[in-house]
Design a protein around this nucleic acid. Structure first.
Lengths: 111, 111
DNA sequence: ACAATAGTGAAGTAGTTACTTCAGTATCGA
DNA sequence: TCGATACTGAAGTAACTACTTCACTATTGT
């Protein structure tokens, strides 16, 4: 579920926008209402709600409405999934370099 | 340099596209030429070159031309920067949850 | 020298994205 | 109950993105 390619797609797409990353950054410091999220951003509330919907669809953020206030919070598992994708690729590359290094060291021994 | 917000922007934007992630995935298994990168993708060579340019501008991929072959390889430091951004936010959130848990445990003791 | 290979670059286009404004609906607080 | 608050939703638009095709250049193998 976490590694569903379609979900991964939505997550990276969501993180591609600076305003949305700013929102995630804000939420990493604790839950916030829509207006609180909007406050530091130079755009209309409507625009913020649209960004929020993208974040929610991607699974990176979960929201909950109580009365007239929608409270938003980060979904750390989703962040972990994106992190994991990058990490796997980087590690694959680095392991490859290590093997290459070992190989070169060995062939040097054989001189 | 690694944490330059503009560079981070380019990186996440680059990772947002599935074709580009597929290219990064391929490159994580070792260097490849443009045609090798293009081979599994259902699009023209020109389109692949355009994606490659995005990846290169983002710093995620470095390329080097020898003769008529452009060889592409992953830049693990750039991947690490993206990874790091996500990790920091997730950890901030999780530390917050821990502190909250401690607080709740303490106030429970005080009954 | 010549054909095949490997990639480059420009122009065009359909679809998407990131906004805007404006008009609306709940909910809350005095 | 009535005004202020906190969103919500639709419609429009300008800019951007992910392609395409086609014409082109440089390099390589025979």
């Amino acid at each position: 579920m976490l590694h569903d390619p379609a979900q991964l797609d939505l997550m990276f797409q969501a993180l591609a926008d600076p305003a949305r990353r700013q929102m995630v950054d804000r939420l990493s410091r604790g839950p916030a209402s829509v207006s609180q999220l909007a406050e530091p951003l130079a755009m209309s509330l409507s625009a913020v709600v649209q960004h929020l919907n993208v974040l929610e669809a991607s699974g990176l953020v979960r929201t909950e409405k109580l009365g007239r206030v929608r409270t938003c919070r980060i979904e750390p598992q989703a962040l972990r999934a994106a992190e994991h994708w990058i990490n796997e690729r980087r590690l694959a590359w680095e392991r490859r370099l290590d093997r290459l290094g070992d190989f070169l060291a060995e062939t040097k021994d054989e001189t």
